[in-house]
Write a protein that binds this DNA or RNA. Structure first.
Length: 223
DNA sequence: CGTTTTTGACCAGCGC
DNA sequence: GCGCTGGTCAAAAACG
């Protein structure tokens, strides 16, 4: 519902380990995807959207969030928080969340989801962002379908699902138990459609066929 | 009026 | 087998 406009930049990632460039201007350290999903029939995999605030641009109307960590979930989530956060950027971005509803006509999905939707591989990606808001705008429309308090965290965990019909991408959002100012977002699944709103910042990795969407606003309208 | 949120219940998987 | 935990469903309320 409440979409938040955010500055965005597309980050391409070579295939490498995550290594945070110290003193990097941007908050995001790096980003890479699973290169392993081989049997991609026709649908191109869609990775979660990422965005990074651009420091030189003071943008009171846009939300800023620092992606300090991210990880692909082939490992138990518990292991994820095992190590101390390596790169917590000193950006004390007081993320002023400006709600900006980008609701556009949804594309009709004539094909009703068959009973058995094949899930060759449940792609999961999780990343931690420093943000006051929990719902990061990635251009998609998310419908909350559950809330649960987990054992390890005092904060409840929210469950969202892509509201686009036929798209069964889920994401769960919870605040970091250690730093409540951080939000842990976990995407699960791949979008079978493009963002409901126009995607302006996007690129597709030819090798993997993945889309990388980082923004849904025209460059000129960011300010 | 249509859509999303809320919230408790329900269910499945796992560990003991 | 039982209990716990996490994830999902679904009815009702709330919201625009």
């Amino acid at each position: 519902m409440a979409a938040v406009g955010a500055h965005a930049a597309v980050y391409h990632h070579p295939v490498s380990g995550l290594s945070a460039p110290a003193g990097d201007t941007y908050s995001m350290s790096s980003y890479f995807s699973h290169g392993g999903s081989s049997t991609s029939s026709s649908a191109s995999s869609f990775s979660a959207a990422l965005a990074a605030a651009t420091p030189p641009l003071p943008d009171p109307s846009g939300a800023q969030f620092d992606i300090s960590e991210f990880f692909f979930d082939d490992a138990p989530p518990a292991a994820v928080f095992n190590g101390a956060p390596a790169a917590v950027l000193p950006d004390g971005a007081a993320a002023s969340a400006a709600a900006h509803a980008t609701r556009s006509a949804a594309e009709a999905a004539p094909a009703p989801a068959p009973a058995a939707v094949e899930r060759p591989r449940t792609e999961r990606i999780a990343f931690r962002t420093k943000s006051e808001i929990e719902i990061l705008d990635d251009g998609y429309k998310w419908r909350k379908y559950g809330k649960k308090s987990v054992k390890n965290s005092p904060n409840p965990r929210n469950y969202y699902r892509c509201s686009t019909e036929g798209c069964n991408v889920k994401k769960r959002v919870e605040r970091d138990k250690d730093d409540p100012s951080y939000v842990v977002t976990t995407y699960e699944g791949t979008h079978n459609h493009v963002s409901p709103s126009t995607v302006y910042y996007a690129s597709q990795d030819a090798a993997s066929g993945r889309f990388f969407v980082a923004g849904t606003q025209p460059p000129g309208s960011l300010n």
